[in-house]
Simulated assay, not measured.
Amino acid sequence: MSKRYGLITALLVLILIVAGCSNANNNAGNGEKDESSGQTAGTSAKEGNLDSKASYEDVTVKIGVQGKGGLFGKAQEQKWFEEAFGEVGARVEWVEFQSGPPMVEAMASNHLDFAGMGNMPPISAQAAGIDFKIISQLLDGKNNVAIIVPTDSPIQTIADLKGKKVAVTKGSNAYNFLYQVLVKAGLAKSDIQEIQLQPDETQPSFESGKVDAWAVWDPYITLNTLSGKGRVLADGETEGVLSPSFQLVRSDFAKEYPELVTLYLKTFEQARQWEATNQEEAFQRYADERSIPIELVQGMQSRAAMVNIPVSDETIAGQQNTADFQFELGTIRKQINVADVFDNQYIEEALK
């Protein structure tokens, strides 16, 4: 793969979950509630402080990341998570992945404890019997997934996609978005030519005109629209089809170490607060490490502004609709009750 497309793939990390902690400018760390959650904190997973250091000296916390750099890169450089977990005797191991589906597979084999991803991989994982819990919401899903077309394309509406070649990554949140939007427009799955590709494979095909449209997530949306290579045909805000992202934990880890799940979310929230109060420094760092214009970073952040909040009943209902739709589509083989995997107790405690 060329250096150019390697860079494009690397950009994906900028919208993924952030991690880290800061000793300054941290509301969550000093006991103030995050007002954006709009919810009241509930009972902790385990009352009181964390146990003594000796209780966790044999524990290695495995945190999944998608790509390198971004705030996760800074977190690793500053050893923020290592310090937070080290205070109670636990160790941290970083595990790199290219997308969400391999992350849940790693959880199934006990090789990963925490991960952040879009709304489709958890549905597929739950249907496959993988044991995990969703412990907070990361993105509202309005603008982080879209269908884009070349700037000079004659395609102006979703109906114009009939008979066209549309690239998409199967099992991703973009896959769900594409087909929900098609159904809303009165089109069937058979009305388009589905081209299953990973994003790094799709980029050259999109630029060369080998595909007519591309259902994808950011940073690819921002990368193509700001560079003048493409324009947004539809996104979650225009179509009313949201693609939220979530944080997951392996269920057995949560059962055995509930207080460490809360510690993870507290550390994550401290990082989010750091970025919010140091945007100029953070965004310049992201731009410098990728050798890209800061405007590109700002565009991606505007499409995918991180939250770290309890998952609302409304969002859970939306996730159930997505699961039901995927069952009808045949993407998953059994119906599921998505409420079974949501657990807000840890984020409610972390945001106290």
Rank of each mutant, 00 (worst) to 15 (best):
M1L: 11
V13M: 12
V13P: 00
L14H: 01
I17R: 08
V18Q: 12
V18D: 07
C21W: 15
A24T: 15
A24L: 12
N27C: 02
E35F: 10
S36A: 04
G38Y: 00
Q39T: 13
A41Y: 08
A41T: 12
T43P: 11
N49D: 12
N49R: 15
D51F: 12
D58P: 05
V65I: 14
G67K: 07
G70C: 05
G73Q: 08
Q76A: 04
K79E: 04
A84F: 04
F85G: 00
G86V: 03
G89R: 14
A90F: 04
R91N: 13
V92A: 07
V95L: 11
E105G: 05
E105T: 10
M107H: 05
L112H: 04
P121F: 08
P121K: 13
A128R: 14
G129I: 11
G129H: 12
I130L: 11
F132V: 00
I134C: 06
I134E: 03
D140R: 13
N144F: 07
V145H: 06
A146V: 09
I148F: 01
P150A: 09
P150D: 02
L161W: 02
G163L: 11
K164P: 01
V166D: 02
A167P: 03
A167V: 08
V168M: 10
V168R: 11
S172I: 03
S172R: 11
Y175L: 01
V183C: 04
K184W: 13
A185L: 11
D191W: 12
I192T: 05
I192W: 02
I192G: 02
Q193F: 13
E194D: 06
Q198C: 05
D200E: 14
D200C: 04
F206H: 03
F206K: 06
G209T: 03
V216S: 05
S227D: 09
G228C: 08
R231V: 15
V241W: 14
Y257H: 06
P258K: 00
L263H: 03
L263G: 03
T267D: 02
E269A: 05
W274G: 00
A276D: 11
E281H: 04
F283N: 08
R285K: 14
A287F: 08
R290Q: 09
I292A: 09
P293E: 03
G299S: 10
A304N: 02
A304V: 01
A305M: 13
V307Q: 04
N308T: 09
N308E: 09
S312H: 14
D313Q: 15
T315D: 11
A317L: 07
A317H: 10
F327G: 01
L329T: 09
G330R: 15
T331E: 10
T331N: 15
I332C: 11
V338L: 10
A339K: 12
D340L: 10
D340W: 04
F342D: 00
F342L: 01
